[in-house]
């Protein structure tokens, strides 16, 4: 039975790859177009500092989007990634600042918190059969509340451990090549993207992520442990939320317990713009990364042009609708 699915899946995946590739190409072309337009409109846009600024601004949302991409491809949704990120950053802060744990232990605590939340999400969805929309909506609130409870409603600062901020905002590349001061958070983003891409395209977990999203029943009938792999997918998303939590803590030099809600929507938007289908079974990490860059580049450009806030929101929303519409048109043409 297992062999049956494995035999079926490469053929299926090659066609998927091809249709994905079109959307990725479209998204990439859109990103280039956005960059060109802003470069023409403002001389301050295409400068080294600003490009680095965009890279940094993409890190948190991009990493959240990586995790949610897996969940969406598997045919579920995870609304809790934003507040789980917050809870993770608070846990990191509690370990480092209040319990004086070494920085690496604190980072591990943050990432583990994310993983734990993911395991709970996965169990609720796969074992208790609660629809993922509802289960993760519940987790959104649980994590938000716990972040406030654990932090005592106060931001926790990393003032005693300047290394923590430096690890994220310092530049290893700048140390090797003077002048090329790209902060380490950007490396973390690309490192995570690379790992996510490898998991999705070369491992069993990746193959079953697609299998769950394309046809869960068929996967079950061919002997796939649906419950186990679903939990694994949510756990992976939780781990990425945990990493994002550590990064946001490092960048703000503090764990801010009251932010986080709404971040999940930007992450989902990044995945969708990048060609991940909300009905499951389709998507790619490269697409999601491009999607995240489209959002951050657009936001940055509109801010540089001092476009009023209310219009910035309208434009970003419009882009998401346009991206999904293009995706639907493309699909229809293929059929």
């Amino acid at each position: 039975m297992r062999i049956g699915l494995a035999a079926l899946s490469p053929a299926r995946r090659t066609t998927l790859m091809r249709s994905d590739a079109v959307q990725r190409l479209l998204a990439f072309a859109a990103l280039i177009a956005i960059i060109l337009i802003f470069s023409l409109l403002s001389p301050n846009f295409l400068q080294f500092d600003n490009v680095v600024g965009i890279l940094i601004a993409t890190a948190v949302n991009g990493i959240l989007a990586l995790g949610v991409t897996f969940v969406i491809i598997s045919g579920s949704i995870d609304l809790s990634i934003g507040t789980v990120m917050t809870l993770s950053s608070v846990m990191t802060a509690v370990f480092i600042t209040e319990w004086h744990a070494p920085v690496p232990v604190g980072i591990l605590a943050g990432v583990s918190t994310g993983a734990l939340a993911g395991i709970v999400n996965g169990t609720l969805v796969a074992k208790l059969k609660i629809p993922s929309f509802i289960a993760t909506l519940g987790m959104l609130n649980v994590a938000k509340g716990l972040a406030l409870v654990v932090s005592g409603l106060k931001p926790i600062y990393f003032n005693d451990t300047p290394d923590f901020n430096r690890a994220a905002m310092g530049s290893v590349i700048g140390g090797v090549i003077p002048g090329l001061d790209i902060p380490n958070v950007v490396l973390v983003l690309f490192g995570c993207a690379l790992v996510a891409s490898l998991i999705l395209t070369t491992t069993v977990l990746g193959r079953f992520t697609f299998a769950l999203g394309s046809n869960e029943e068929a996967a079950r009938l061919s002997g796939v442990n649906v419950v186990g792999w679903k939990i694994a997918v949510f756990t992976l998303a939780g781990i990425f939320s945990g990493i994002a939590g550590v990064l946001i803590g490092a960048r703000l030099n503090s764990a801010q317990p009251s932010l986080g809600q709404g971040y999940e929507l930007d992450a989902i938007a990044a995945a969708v713009i990048g060609g991940t289908s909300l009905s499951g079974g389709e998507g790619s990490i490269l697409g999601t990364v491009i999607g995240a860059f489209i959002i951050s580049t657009l936001t940055n450009g509109l801010r540089i042009l001092s476009v009023p806030q209310e219009w910035q929101t309208v434009v970003t929303g419009g882009i998401v609708i346009l991206a999904v519409y293009l995706d639907i048109v493309r699909r229809r043409q293929q059929q």
């Binding site: 301050n44 500092d49 600003n50 600024g53 601004a57 960048r251 703000l252 801010r303 540089i304």
Partner: peptide, 17 residues
């Protein structure tokens, strides 16, 4: 939001050296 305000400030500084 501290993170959003950070990115906003950077964009403003970029646009207005």
């Amino acid at each position: 939001d501290q993170l959003k305000s950070t990115d906003i400030t950077k964009a403003i500084l970029q646009a207005n050296p």
